[in-house]
């Protein structure tokens, strides 16, 4: 285990040093991403300027959701850079995956260590900033349980979206090119759960409850943190499913990933 962590850190440090070599491009993309994220929240604030609430939620309540999703997704995007389907599909096309299979290390570990896109830091910090400001404005009633649960929700969100990255990458074993449909879940899902789920149409909400259970990752935990009533009458434990759903999603996607690697090893030319 210690060896695994040691190797992982070394691989990541290579990625960081490589990006530092291109300093101008690094700083530019960092500030560009920061700008885009701020514009995103800016347009949200504009909506509030006109309507003063979304589905009964105030700007800061939505900011709580929004900031959390942005920060968690950004962190996932950073640590799962290698599993970003667009980046991973390049490993297949360039034959780098064969080089990975030739090394006496886990393939998953090496893919995780094959990319670490530092400019994601800007999305993380923007999200964190929005979250912190919102919390400060909201006067949340913090209990020890809430404080302890917050990182678990964050972790669940990361695992959940990481799972979609892993699935998207695994599909490229068959398709070589990344599949756009997966983006609907990853990026579309991210946009979707950044807002309170009760504003959506029934069929859409059902989809994100029973098919892709994203609703447990953000909306229900937010109801718990902000002490809001549950409009859908889910069981009382619904807000606490976030880590379970997230980890379950990631475990399932890694099972698919292993299957994909076996497929690759029997068909790759």
């Amino acid at each position: 285990m210690r060896r695994t962590i040691d190797i992982y850190l070394r691989l990541i440090s290579v990625q960081i040093r490589s990006q530092m070599q291109y300093r101008a491009s690094f700083l530019m993309s960092l500030s560009a991403t920061a700008l885009i994220t701020f514009l995103g929240f800016g347009s949200l604030a504009m909506v509030f300027w006109r309507f003063d609430n979304i589905g009964g939620w105030t700007l800061w309540e939505v900011g709580f959701l929004y900031g959390m999703v942005e920060a968690a997704f950004g962190t996932m995007d950073l640590f799962f850079s290698g599993f970003n389907p667009h980046i991973f599909s390049r490993l297949i096309r360039m034959g780098t995956l064969d080089q990975i299979l030739l090394r006496p290390l886990s393939v998953t570990l090496q893919v995780l260590g094959s990319s670490f896109i530092m400019k994601r830091l800007s999305r993380i910090s923007q999200g964190a900033l929005i979250f912190v400001i919102s919390v400060a404005m909201l006067d949340v009633h913090w209990t020890p349980a809430k404080v302890a649960y917050l990182p678990l929700v964050f972790f669940g969100l990361m695992c959940f979206f990481g799972g979609f990255f892993v699935i998207g990458s695994t599909l490229t074993f068959w398709t070589v090119q990344p599949i756009e449909v997966v983006n609907i879940f990853t990026y579309g899902g991210r946009e979707m759960i950044a807002y309170p789920m009760h504003i959506y149409e029934r069929w859409m909400r059902d989809f994100f409850t029973y098919i892709v259970p994203a609703i447990f990752l953000n909306y229900y935990p937010a109801l718990y943190f902000l002490e809001k009533p549950d409009p859908f009458g889910m069981p009382d434990f619904a807000p606490f499913l976030a880590p379970v759903v997230g980890v379950g999603m990631l475990v399932a996607s890694f099972a698919f990933w292993s299957y994909g690697i076996r497929h690759y090893q029997s068909t790759a030319t």
Binding site: V14, R17, S18, G95, T96, D98, Q99, L102, R103
Partner: peptide, 13 residues
């Protein structure tokens, strides 16, 4: 193993 056209080394290092 050395596979002619591909390198096992890290490109930027």
């Amino acid at each position: 193993a050395v596979f002619g056209q591909r390198t096992t080394l890290w490109w930027d290092l």
